[in-house]
Amino acid sequence: MIGLIPEMFTYPFMCRAFAVGSLIALCAALLGVTLVLKRYSMIGDGLSHVGFGALAIASAMNAAPLAVAIPVVMAAAVALLYLSENSRIHGDAAIALISTGSLAVGVTVVSMTTGMNTDVYNYLFGSILSMSEGDVVLTAVISAAVLVVFLLFYNRIFAVTFDETFARATGIRTGRLSILIAVLTALVIVIGMRMMGSLLISSLVVFPALTSMRVFKTFRGVMISAGIVSVVCLLLGLTISYLHATPTGASIVLCNIAAFFIYLGISKVREKTYNKG
């Protein structure tokens, strides 16, 4: 089986998956820390369903999938923020509305046009084969841009996540910053859902953050750990998926679950030794 691993890299599609996947995993994990702490964990889930609807419509119209999905999901992200802050429909309910609504639209469009084929299955559960060369370039450019913007705003994002009132009182434009976070999340969701599948992409956002918070106690520590955990789980998951022909997204999520329990174990052991000492 070890011999299969070098062989894996002779396939261009696997190399593409490793490169692009790592970038996406890193972006998703970093944003995820903020989203989880701001109690916005489900926003990723809602947006990925919108992404499914958009992809279904794009394939019905024979349009480029990402070109349709990116603006639609970004608009949905801003709309979700607006709904949860300015109306009587609160965060979780707004997400439920938008996500089930767009899933319904997507399924209807699919059944009226192509029917449930492999493409649709891949939209839902992801596939490493789905990345064309054009997709790879676009995805790499977008995730690099997300990373740079995130690093430039890192200190402000910390301030807004920790204490929005204080941040607002000291002149940080928290509204604009929330929109920025929502837009970045939307971008990561769209580029990640081709590989992970729209049903599973939000795990890439939530798991590494929650896992890292078991053990690390500073914001920077959690961020760094989340990034590493996310990339390692992605690489492991992809390898398992290649070796055993398991679904890519699901394999990556299973690795994330394992990481979560490992971290949980570490924190329990640490607590015990701490109590003894």
Binding site: L37, K38, R39, N155, R156, F158, A159, T161, F162, D163, F166, A167, T170, G171, I172, M213, F216, K217, T218, F219, R220, G221, V222
Partner: peptide, 19 residues
């Protein structure tokens, strides 16, 4: 939210310098 927020004292105090 702050009661289980992972942040070091230094990170919190520094954020006052942002403005």
């Amino acid at each position: 939210v702050q009661r289980d927020f992972p942040a070091s004292v230094n990170e919190v105090v520094l954020s006052g310098c942002l403005p």
